[in-house]
Computed example of a mutant assay.
Amino acid sequence: MTGKRVAVVGIHGHGASHVRNVLRLPDAELVAVADPQGGGDLAVQVFPSLDELLAAVEVDVVVICTPIQTHVPLAELAMRTGADVLLEKPPTASLAEFDQLSSVVAETGRALQVGFQAQASEATLGLASMVAGGELGEIRGISATGKWLRTARYFQRARWSGRRHLDGVDVVDGAVTNPLAHSAAAALLLDGSTGVDDVRQVETELYRANPIESDDTSTVRITTSRGTPILIAVTLCAGEQLEPSVTVHGSEGRAVLRYTSDTLELHQGDARTVRTYERADLLENLLAHRADPSVPLYCPLAATGGFTRVVEAVRTAADPAEIPADLIDWQGEGLDRHPILRDVEPWIDRAADELALFSEIGAPWSNARRR
């Protein structure tokens, strides 16, 4: 045994990528997994639940990739048994849960890393340094756009998909808070506003074209304590899947971060440069921190406080307004069926450029809130 003993909870779907990641790291040894659906053909011990796993196997690190509403109890269970944790985003479904989990971190002294991969990108961190150093001048604002396409299969993959609540428990699985959560988290990092107290106000406009509880098309405007407006404009009802981006609008230049490819595009004067950067691995960083606490975590729980303020605003907002049927084109059949919100892409671009909510620029579906 050469590496730290790692267990993965939730190994199907995105969890499978965590299993592959553990297996490739020389400093990690996959000793067990927990999933009620079983472990497939993995040659390790398989348990139906984390508590049964921890009762039978000694573990140093637990990777949690499970439904949002299970994050806090599972992370707490792991930390109270002495394990460090890599927890998928969003870490919690509410500020109250965030406070609860923060207390467990402080009480146990365990390390908890949150799975915002873009926070470990040299592109993101380099741009944050540029913003802090004034290289883009005075910051007019930051905007984030996401134009994704999701079919009925995505919303039917699990009971909690597309739900705001399930069995009396908050889930808050919407476009802003889960699939495109990296947009808001990265924007807050670029502003240096990652803590709970770094967010002054959050305005939400949530809409849905799909027959779900949560939002699939939204604008959210965050005002940070330093006064920066951050505008999030996202949809899961685009005509095609496009790469999301975060743009910093400065008086001396503009920077576009494409966080899924770790690409940074700079516009300063007449010059335009594009460069792709490396990204560190969050589990590898957690293992290094465990070996030497002087190695900082890229995304500790405390650094997701500002993002959790956004989650809380979405959680407590009115239910998403239903987008009128005459604005939607449906394509595909069965599990491949999906809505395309007509002209959503240019409206998203305009909202981002003007740092404005959909209703403020007259997007046609924003009338749904006044019906």
Rank of each mutant, 00 (worst) to 15 (best):
G3I: 01
K4T: 02
K4Y: 14
R5M: 02
A7E: 05
V9K: 01
G10T: 02
I11Y: 05
A16Q: 14
L23G: 08
L30V: 04
V31D: 04
V31E: 06
D35M: 08
G39E: 06
G40M: 09
V46K: 05
S49F: 05
L53F: 08
L54P: 00
A56F: 07
V57H: 02
V57L: 07
V63L: 00
C65H: 06
C65P: 01
Q69R: 14
P73Y: 01
L74F: 10
A75Q: 00
R80Y: 03
R80F: 05
E88Q: 10
P90R: 09
P90E: 05
A93M: 12
A93P: 12
D99V: 14
S103I: 06
V104A: 13
V104I: 00
V104G: 04
A106Q: 12
T108L: 00
G109E: 05
R110A: 10
A111H: 13
A111I: 07
Q113A: 10
V114A: 03
V114M: 02
G115Y: 07
F116Q: 12
Q117V: 12
Q117R: 15
A120Y: 13
S121H: 11
E122N: 15
G126I: 07
A128L: 08
V131H: 09
E138M: 08
E138G: 05
R140F: 15
G141H: 08
I142R: 00
A144N: 10
A144F: 13
W148A: 15
R150I: 04
Y154W: 15
F155C: 08
D170N: 14
D170C: 07
D173P: 04
D173R: 03
G174V: 00
L180W: 04
A186H: 01
L188E: 04
L189D: 03
L189I: 02
L190S: 01
L190F: 01
S193R: 11
G195Q: 14
V196Y: 03
V199D: 12
R200A: 15
Q201P: 09
V202D: 07
E203F: 12
T204G: 06
E205T: 11
E205A: 12
R208C: 09
D215P: 02
D215Q: 01
T217E: 02
T217I: 01
S218M: 03
V220N: 05
T224V: 03
S225C: 09
I230N: 06
V234Q: 06
L236N: 12
S245C: 15
H249I: 15
S251H: 11
E252Y: 06
L257V: 05
R258E: 05
Y259L: 14
Y259C: 10
T260W: 09
D262Y: 06
E265C: 00
H267G: 00
R272V: 13
T273W: 12
L283K: 13
E284C: 07
A288N: 06
H289T: 07
S294A: 15
Y298L: 08
P300W: 09
P300N: 01
L301H: 04
A302K: 14
F307H: 09
F307T: 07
R309S: 10
V311W: 03
V314E: 00
P320F: 05
A321G: 09
W330E: 13
G332M: 10
D336Q: 15
R342Q: 04
R342T: 08
W347P: 03
R350S: 14
A351P: 14
A352W: 13
E354M: 13
L355W: 12
L357Y: 14
L357W: 13
E360A: 15
G362D: 09
A363M: 05
R370F: 14
